[in-house]
Simulated scan of single mutants.
Amino acid sequence: MKSIIALLLVFVSMGVNAAIDAYEFKDDANRERFQQLTTELRCPKCQNQNLADSNSPIATDLRREVYRMVEAGQQDEEITDFMVSRYGEFVLYRPKVNESTWILWYGPFVLLAVGAVVILLITRKRKRTNNTPDDSLNENEKTRLARLLNKGNVK
């Protein structure tokens, strides 16, 4: 019984320390925009967490900044452009297609095509080597092989 109470106290104390952002929005449209933007923007400090899921101090600051910009009536493009200008393309989970991101967008397809060509070339080479007769036997070995094969055919 004491261990259950101790566990409950641990869970309660963990919940008290968790940071919860409570923002008051003008309307539900702003709330939805805020939620969408914070899930689409990556935390600059964390490896692979969006702003909504990260507990880092910079993510808290950026959520506050996104809230301020949404409530100020700025468009989504303006907010993402501000974040990109400040933190680079890293903050976008889906970066824009341009010269610097071509390898990111088209690289997997190029690697897939190269892999398919390599597999095709390997299978063709194997078929060619399997279809060619093996002439590595000398004359003595060929006559011995012929005698052994003829012995098997005699009834």
Rank of each mutant, 00 (worst) to 15 (best):
D28S: 15
D28A: 13
D28P: 03
D28M: 13
D28V: 15
A29M: 07
A29N: 05
N30T: 04
N30G: 12
R31Q: 13
E32F: 13
R33W: 08
R33H: 06
R33D: 06
F34Q: 03
F34I: 05
F34S: 00
F34A: 01
Q35C: 01
Q36N: 09
L37Q: 02
L37E: 04
L37A: 00
L37G: 02
T38P: 05
T39Y: 13
T39A: 07
E40Y: 08
E40K: 09
R42M: 10
R42S: 10
R42W: 09
R42F: 03
C43S: 07
P44Y: 07
P44H: 09
P44C: 02
P44L: 05
K45I: 15
C46S: 11
C46T: 03
C46D: 07
Q47L: 12
Q47W: 11
N48Y: 06
Q49W: 09
Q49C: 07
L51R: 10
L51H: 08
L51K: 07
L51E: 07
L51T: 07
A52S: 11
A52T: 07
D53G: 06
D53L: 10
D53K: 12
D53N: 10
S54C: 15
S54N: 04
S54P: 03
S54Q: 06
N55V: 02
N55D: 11
S56W: 02
S56T: 15
P57C: 07
I58L: 13
I58R: 01
I58A: 04
I58M: 11
A59M: 06
A59L: 12
A59Q: 04
A59H: 06
T60G: 13
T60R: 10
T60L: 11
T60S: 10
D61L: 15
D61A: 15
D61R: 10
L62Y: 02
R63K: 13
R63S: 03
R63F: 02
R64F: 12
E65S: 08
E65R: 11
E65I: 09
V66G: 03
V66D: 00
Y67C: 01
Y67F: 12
Y67G: 02
Y67E: 01
R68W: 00
R68K: 10
R68F: 06
M69C: 01
M69S: 05
M69V: 04
M69W: 03
M69R: 14
M69N: 05
V70S: 02
V70D: 01
A72V: 03
G73D: 05
G73A: 01
G73K: 01
G73C: 06
Q74D: 04
Q74A: 08
Q74R: 11
Q75W: 05
Q75L: 13
D76I: 09
E77W: 09
E77V: 15
E77P: 04
E77Y: 15
E77A: 15
E78V: 05
E78D: 12
